[in-house]
Design a protein around this nucleic acid. Structure first.
Lengths: 334, 334
DNA sequence: GGCATATTTGACAGCGCTGGCACCGCGCAA
DNA sequence: TTGCGCGGTGCCAGCGCTGTCAAATATGCC
């Protein structure tokens, strides 16, 4: 058993008190350069790793934060995780990845249990966990720091990293308008996601700005899934005159639209242009590759972690979106 | 501040020693039913949550295990996480989700650091972290329990949850042969994944079993990505006579093949059949929906966690794969 | 040189639990 | 009756660190 040298052994070998070793490990000041070097050398040689549990128990901070998510999209979850984890580990924090059930009545108490058990220093909320007032209130009440990624409600309050969904959706729509499309279908996402309504608003603003009347019949509800995208598309494609373009609220639904078009032998983009939203991995894996709005999920999560953990950074950050024009959009027919 | 009732307050209110409360929390025997009930009632009322850090520090177990992964596929990672996390939380363990860099020379020491810092009770390895001899050796040396998900090397040793990759690939190939295909291209995955070679072997066995000569020119290397699948497909489609079917080592590459076929106006499955492997989310999002071999990733991870944490379960488990016949495979042309 | 102030170090308590052991009281065999 | 086993309980040490405070030493300034 080579295992677990303790801080006391280190201090004995280095010839200092174990409190001094603790100072070195925590990068505190008031340690002479020489002592620091000596201790670090011993630490490295013995391969000493301080017990996280002991630090947590003894100190006031645990260096642990949790990322809460409840999102069915592997793509989204993966990138949120990656971004947050990177910033946390850069700053010496451990990130607990916690899937939760945002519909559950026990959500708040489950999260509080986690906070207590793990002595969390803060939490990162990703949509749709960002939209649960009871949770936000309880977090505020306990004074626990938290950041939200792309929050819909209470935007102004607290720390958050966002994109401008309205502007992004406006740009997508304007791209379509610029290609000559006038009858543009829109497939909404889940009602419970605030972004759904913001994207719809962006779509309407673009129409209005270009003098195109808003037609309620061209807006269909979807559920953010591939299947629901296909169903919504079939409804839209029955309309006469048929829309020449469809803007879906996310890429999964856009892929569904694309499949529906293939099924009906409608040429994309010759007879129908399709645009998505997210720029998920899917966008490049379908054929033709999907025109979509890139949402920097990884970077949002990175920025969120940064906001919460490095005090200098401000309270809010808005990141840039970017239209990825690929091959599913083209000039409107005739 | 309502926060953090401690075990002492609970014991005071319940009128027992705090050691007895600890016994109740840990479900130890030698506590009378009545006492247990009383304590549980107080625990619930105060909303008491034992400090994980303190338990870890005082006891010999931390009730923490880690899942190590280094896989570029969001789909795979998501499902591995979900399966492992579910079983862990059912059994009262916390699961740390740890991305690692399996190429890094520091991998072993990084993992050992994690083990020491977090006092891990065990680790779950997913491919390709399963294939690093130095890591397995060090784990063995320290006597730390670990399970592997779909290991390639040293299959017999230790705990593992697997599928039979050879048989699965054989079945895919036989499906194609059954449809009349004789010239079947095969796109290999990454050289470093053992499953790559097992799938190739299954492909060869099926050919042999049906008296079809193995043609080396029909096997092309890919890199498990969409792009590499497209490139490999273009090579295969140059061959004369052109293969009438392509079996790709995973779904991403199969999607690449499909895109390449669309690009060249090759009808799928009329002129070319395509099969993948994994049944990832992608398989249903492309058009036409992909015929593929379903690999129960979630269930594998669930079983792996179970093997490690519930002692009754054995050492090894093999789960069933299942061919998902969808729309990219059809009868061989003429 | 003397005194105030800053830097560097150590002693010690205690974070909230678990493990080990002693203890109490009871029933049952001897 | 004594003795023993055993279910039920409490006492205490101590896990490996951090926070606090005080002591020792160095530095600056008139």
């Amino acid at each position: 058993m080579s295992s677990r040298p303790t801080i006391k052994e280190v201090s004995k070998i280095a010839g200092v008190s174990f409190k001094t070793v603790s100072r070195v490990l925590n990068n505190e000041k008031h340690v002479s350069e020489e002592t620091r070097r000596r201790v670090e050398e011993v630490v490295a040689r013995l391969n000493f790793r301080p017990s996280h549990a002991a630090r947590t128990l003894a100190g006031r901070r645990s260096f642990q934060v949790a990322l809460l998510y409840d999102n069915p999209s592997p793509y989204y979850v993966y990138h949120v995780q990656t971004g947050a984890q990177q910033r946390c580990s850069e700053l010496g924090y451990r990130l607990l990845l916690q899937p939760v059930d945002s519909q559950s009545p026990d959500l708040v108490s489950n999260v509080m249990a986690l906070i207590d058990e793990a002595h969390l220093d803060g939490v990162i909320l990703s949509p749709p966990v960002t939209e649960i007032p009871a949770l936000l209130d309880e977090l505020d009440r306990r004074g626990l720091p938290y950041v939200r990624i792309a929050p819909g409600a209470r935007k102004e309050a607290g720390m958050a990293a966002t994109i401008d969904d309205v502007a992004a959706a406006r740009e997508v729509t304007e791209h379509l308008i610029g290609l000559g499309h006038r009858a543009i279908g829109f497939i909404r996402g889940l009602d419970s996601h605030v972004s759904t309504w913001e994207r719809l608003q962006g779509y309407r603003e673009a129409l209005a700005a270009h003098g195109i009347a808003f037609d309620e019949d061209l807006v269909v509800a979807g559920e953010n899934s591939f299947t629901s995208g296909g169903e919504a598309a079939r409804k839209l494609l029955e309309r006469r005159p048929r829309p020449t373009a469809i803007f879906a609220g996310n890429d999964d639904m856009a892929a569904g639209v694309l499949a529906a078009a293939h099924e009906s032998d409608i040429d994309v983009p010759g007879q129908l242009s399709i645009a998505g939203f997210d720029d998920s991995d899917l966008a490049k894996a379908v054929w033709p590759p999907l025109t979509t709005m890139r949402q920097p999920v990884r970077e949002l999560a990175y920025a969120a972690a940064d906001l919460m953990l490095s005090p200098e950074t401000g309270q809010q950050v808005t990141l840039e979106h970017k239209l990825m024009v690929r091959a599913t959009t083209g000039p409107a027919p005739r």
